[in-house]
């Protein structure tokens, strides 16, 4: 699939997800175009993080269809049944999807550079020297060229999150998922992470960003959906939705966070 074709990067059709008896996603429909920054906002418990985690199959969906780049995620459809893929196939799908977590989840026993090198070496079989060179480039790109040999515990939260972004980029993903990337940061460290994400957006990366940073959504976002109680309540251009929300629930939420 080339970048020029117009299959959406992500397409969700009636996606359902339950944890036991609790239905967290109640039929999500949406499309993410190539190269766009797609923001997902909503109150906690609205299912936005769960939806993000379904996109790389960290959570398994119970019904509906979820495509990334035209391919079903984690399942194969035969007739009216979805057959779950084997671990190896799921792992292969995940290679092209980068993910950044709220709590960074850097590997604490490895230096920044080793964190970034890990997947290219272990998964793609890249020679170590080459991976190291590339890791240094990526760390330079997120402004941490001089921190390559620091362990995560020796870095600030903002620096750790930037290393995490570099780690995800090391696999040359076609899609980046951000799960509240700035929620665990001190206020003065939020900016440096958002700057890196902004630069990434300018380079044309397709990004899905679950966030509470309305300013970022308004400035950088191309589309925005507001989710509540497992459904998409409202969607459109960020400026439009954030300034002129049509739905009562959106209005109520925005009046609290803006």
């Amino acid at each position: 699939m080339s970048d020029t074709d117009d299959t959406p990067m992500v397409k969700a059709e009636r996606v359902h997800k339950s944890f036991g008896a609790v239905e967290v996603l109640k039929g999500i429909d949406l499309q993410v175009r190539r190269g766009e920054v797609f923001c997902v906002v909503g109150p906690s418990g609205s299912g936005k993080s769960t939806f993000l985690r379904c996109i790389n199959h960290l959570e398994k969906i119970n019904a509906g269809r979820l495509y990334v780049d035209g391919e079903l995620v984690g399942y194969r459809q035969r007739g009216n049944k979805l057959y779950e893929m084997r671990e190896r196939e799921v792992a292969a799908q995940r290679r092209d999807i980068g993910m950044v977590f709220q709590r960074f989840n850097l590997f604490p026993h490895m230096t920044a550079a080793e964190n970034v090198m890990e997947a290219p070496v272990q998964v793609k079989g890249l020679p170590k020297a080459e991976a190291r060179e590339r890791a240094e480039e990526l760390l330079e790109r997120v402004g941490l060229g001089d921190r390559a040999d620091h362990y995560p515990a020796q870095l600030s939260g903002g620096q750790q999150q930037r290393v995490a972004i570099a780690r995800a980029l090391a696999m040359d993903p076609k899609l980046m998922l951000f799960d509240e990337p700035t929620s665990a940061l001190d206020p003065e460290l939020v900016g440096e992470v958002l700057d890196v994400m902004r630069a990434l957006a300018e380079d044309g990366m397709t990004m899905i960003v679950v966030t509470h940073e309305m300013g970022f959504a308004r400035e950088v976002g191309d589309s925005l959906v507001f989710m509540d109680e497992g459904v998409v309540v409202e969607s459109g251009h960020p400026r439009e939705v954030l300034t002129n929300p049509r739905h009562e629930r959106t209005k109520a939420f925005l009046s609290k966070v803006l």
Binding site: L58, A91, R94, R95, F101, F107, P108, H109, E118
Partner: peptide, 27 residues
């Protein structure tokens, strides 16, 4: 070992054995 470690490794495309050997066991 925090479950976020396994998730991060899986999100990078590592399989279960590699995740255990490279990420979980050393910690």
């Amino acid at each position: 070992v925090d479950s976020g470690q396994t998730e991060a490794a899986q999100a990078l495309g590592m399989n279960g054995t590699k995740t255990m050997r490279r990420i979980v066991l050393p910690q």
